[in-house]
Each structure stands twice: as C-alpha cells, then as structure tokens.
Nucleic acid binder design. Structure first.
Lengths: 223, 223
DNA sequence: GCGCGCTAAGTCCTCAGACAAGCAGAGATG
DNA sequence: CATCTCTGCTTGTCTGAGGACTTAGCGCGC
C-alpha cells in the first residue's frame, strides 16, 4: 500500500481505523463500541473527531449510534463501493460497460420516447453544443445528454446502472478531454445530433448503431 | 410526511436536507456548497452539526470536502438501495438490463475467452443440463452459467454490474420458472449450447445474437 | 512584459469545554 | 411483587479558539 497522495483528515483516518477493527472482528455484528471519550483517548484525537468518524461510517451503513445507549455495528462489511471498483478498472472497461448500457438504451429510447423526452434530449443537445467553456462544464453537459437518452428509454434499472458508475468517472473523462480532445468537435457534435434524430425518427436500429459507433470511437482513442 | 418512528438527530436531518437540495439541483455536480458557517445559519444549527451532516454524506460518496477549498458535490444521487429499486421495477425492466449487459458480454467473451474460461462455461452448461432437481437448483445453475459467460468477457465492471442486481431477482426467476416453465426444456438447453459454441468458435456476432434471442424470448413470455 | 515569492483572506480541520437529552439499572417505596 | 425515582453513563448540540491549507492578488526583481 503506497502512501496516498492526498493526506487524509484525522476524522477519515479514524473512520478507516474503526472499520479495520470491525473487519478484524474486534466488535461483532450488533455489538457496542466503547464510548466516544474512550475511543477518543484510544485514537488520540478529540471527541468531535471521533464523532465525525462514526458519522462517516454511519453514512456507509456500518455503524448506528443511539442517544443514551451507544454506537452499534450494523454491518460487518461495506458493500464494496463503486469508487474502489472504478479505481482499479481501466477506462476501456468503463467504456465497454457504457456501450452495453447506452446502445441498448438508445434503441429502447427510439421506441418509447415521448414528445417530452425528445424535448429534453434536444435541450441537452443544445447544451453540449455551447463552446468556449471549461472542460468540466463540457463533460457535465455531455453526460447530461447521454443521461437524457437513457431516461427516454423508460427503464429505471438502466438509469440506476448509469447513475451508479458513470458520474464517478467524471474526473477521468475530464482528463481524457484535456489530454486527447476530439479531433473534430464538429464531427463529435454531428454524431450526437444524428443520434438525436434517430431517436426522434423512431429508428431503434439506427440509434443503436450510432450510439455504438460513437462510444467505440472513444474507446479506440485509448487503445 | 408522517413523523418517523425514530426521531432523527439534527445532524441526520441536516444530511437529508442537504441531499434534498442537491437532488433538487440547487448545487450541480462538481459545484461548491456554501461555507460551514453559512450552512449552519441556513439550517439553524451549529457548525459541528453541519460538519457531521456533511461527513455523513461524504461517507455516502455524495460530498467531498477539501481543506482550504470547500465542500463539493461528487455525485448527483446516492445509488439507491438495489433492493428498493428492484422492488418497484418490473421483470421486463430487469430482463432489458440483462440484455444490455449479457449481449455485450457474450460478444466480448467470444473475442477474449481463454481455454480456461471455455472450460468453466462448458462445466456450467453441463451443470444446468441436469434434470430432476428443484426449481431453485435449476435457477442457480442457470445463473452460474450466465455469470461464467460474463467472466469470460474479462471486464470487472460488467461482472460487478451483473452481480449487483441479478442475484437479487433470484426469487422472481424461481417464480417465473414455476408458473411459466419453458415450453421445451430441450430447446432451452439447445439455445445455451449454441451460445457456448459461438463463444468457443470465437464468433462475437453470433454469440451476441444468440444471447439476445434467448433473453428476448424470456421477455416475450411476460408480455 | 514575465516569472517569482509573499501576503491576505477564505475555507475546512481539530480541539476543549459546557450543557441538554435520552436510556438503563439500582435502589427505595408502596 | 410492582412501581417509582434517582443516579450514572451515553450520545447530541453548541460555542469559541486556534491551526492548516488553498487560492488569488500584489509587489518586486529580472
């Protein structure tokens, strides 16, 4: 384990320490942790810091604190969060997953889109056409467009899958746009426009092919 | 809004309030939240309470605070509990998501499978051919087969996506097999055999089509 | 003009202390 | 035995004080 580039605040370190001790079996499922003051002394930090550490694990669903009683272990393990998975997967893996979801969603969107959906997609398309902005803003606008397409597919599970990992690769995509921007912004936008029109024209196969072509192109850049 | 049975501490209420405002779009992805003192005044609580609320959302992966800079939104939405999502989505939605993931994975598997992968797939195929077992065992064997195909695609993210929701619909699939069993078990098994052979023969397009045909057939049953 | 270091302001981070609120068990009381 | 009260321990909240870090702006020398 290499030293992290980013120095963790004491509260985050405390959360990691507590999680490690829980994983090691020091406190089993449903067991009570020592009091905040005790933990503070053990960890060598102030009580407020301990409280923040507990609160962080509470947000992860590992701990639950009840006033007047104590802090209890509610889960032995954190469901491996997406950040950890994404940190060790490659950009191409992410793009392949996007292909899987977005190509199917594009076809479904072409079949099921309502006039309202179409309006939203077109608005997002116009949003990502704006030039002269920061790279971050452009990436956000692009992701908003792709999300609109998936929303138009009317399948909650696909939306959930998209939301569960794509927003987390935002920084990677920003880097990607910064280091290897599209050869031709005009062609890039034309591809999105064509996808929009395929959805507007209720052409599932065309929408799927256009979506696949676009994402495969992105993937090629990284080969 | 009914009063919750459990009274929430102010910090938890604050976290909910912040999350609601994020969901409402008050602060977009990557945007900065107001300072602690400002938020404390807005929410009518002390600074430490705000800090705990932020820390809780930080544990959930929604916020990220950087010393000397501010608190930033890192995700627009908490990935809702899969159980909750799946409880209100239809079987067809699940099958559509499976189509998205498995069709793409089948094609990739045909390209990338190693001899070891192929052995695993064939073993799983033999496993699901066994007759005269309980419905549960058959469903488990079937899911194991489909998972082997995805493993052969060599993309951790796709495996993670599959694992994150497909095992949770096990009971639904058991019900499905019980109430509407496949018209012809032989044809069902032949379809899986054909998929295996397409992967063995390194035929991405064929594997994709066979996978799609199989899952679409399942979806039709529920129309 | 250009690059450099320095300063200042704003932000989060940590601590200590104080008091309030809630819970559980020991002991008193009937 | 049933019930009440009191006491000690726990978490919940607030305040004030520094400390550490980042960014932006300024002046200076080149």
């Amino acid at each position: 384990m290499t030293a992290p580039v980013q120095r963790h605040p004491l509260a985050a370190q405390g959360a990691e320490a507590l999680l490690a001790r829980i994983r090691a079996g020091e406190w089993g499922l449903g067991h009570r942790l020592p009091g905040e003051t005790t933990l503070a002394a053990q960890l060598g930090v102030g009580r407020s810091t301990v409280r923040e550490a507990v609160r962080e694990l509470s947000g992860k669903g590992v701990l639950d604190s009840r006033q007047g009683v104590g802090v209890f272990v509610t889960a032995l393990d954190v469901t491996e969060d997406w950040d950890a998975v994404l940190r060790r997967t490659s950009v191409t893996s992410v793009l392949e997953a996007r292909i899987a979801i977005e190509v199917e969603a594009a076809a479904l969107a072409a079949e099921r889109r309502t006039p309202n959906d179409l309006r939203a997609v077109r608005r997002a398309l116009a949003g990502r056409a704006v030039t002269g902005r920061s790279v971050e803003d452009h990436v956000d606008a692009d992701m908003a467009f792709h999300r609109c397409v998936i929303v138009a597919a009317h399948n909650d599970l696909l939306i959930e899958l998209f939301d569960s990992f794509v927003p987390r690769v935002r920084t990677s995509m920003v880097d990607m746009m910064r280091t290897r921007p599209p050869a031709s912004p005009e062609a890039d936008h034309a591809a999105h426009e064509a996808l929009t029109e395929a959805i507007a024209g209720r052409d599932p196969q065309g929408a799927a092919e256009l979506s696949r072509a676009h994402l495969t192109g992105l993937k090629e850049v990284y080969k």
